[in-house]
């Protein structure tokens, strides 16, 4: 029984990313359980691309993903909020200057 548990725990969770067509990024579409990456790819094809939704698939073990804390009050993202000079609208350019 203990061994059975161990084997069951051996089916890791994979996150699935699909490129819907050439020229676009891979986008996260969900997750699935599989024994290894190769099986995860096959299952991802059957599960997430039954209707031509993809031309390329990535699978990544969920445990290998490092993630920021999702809370938007998180100071992690604070540095990007206080640098208004990174945006083009920060700069005043006279109206008559073309192509700016």
């Amino acid at each position: 029984m203990a061994e059975h548990r161990e084997i069951r725990a051996g089916w890791p969770l994979f996150e699935v990313f699909v490129r819907s067509k050439r020229g676009l990024n891979h986008v996260h579409v969900g997750s699935l359980r599989a024994a290894d990456a190769e099986m995860a790819l096959r299952h991802a094809r059957d599960l997430y691309t039954r209707r031509n939704e993809g031309v390329s698939i990535w699978v990544v073990k969920s445990s290998d993903i490092a993630a920021s804390s999702p809370d938007e009050k998180d100071p992690f993202f604070a540095p990007s909020a206080d640098k208004v000079y990174r945006h083009p609208t920060f700069y005043d350019i006279p109206e008559h200057v073309p192509h700016m």
Binding site: R8, G10, W11, A35
Partner: peptide, 13 residues
Amino acid sequence: VRDAAAAYAAKHA
């Protein structure tokens, strides 16, 4: 099937 797949994956890893 689940057990065999897990054993195969472990062996290859």
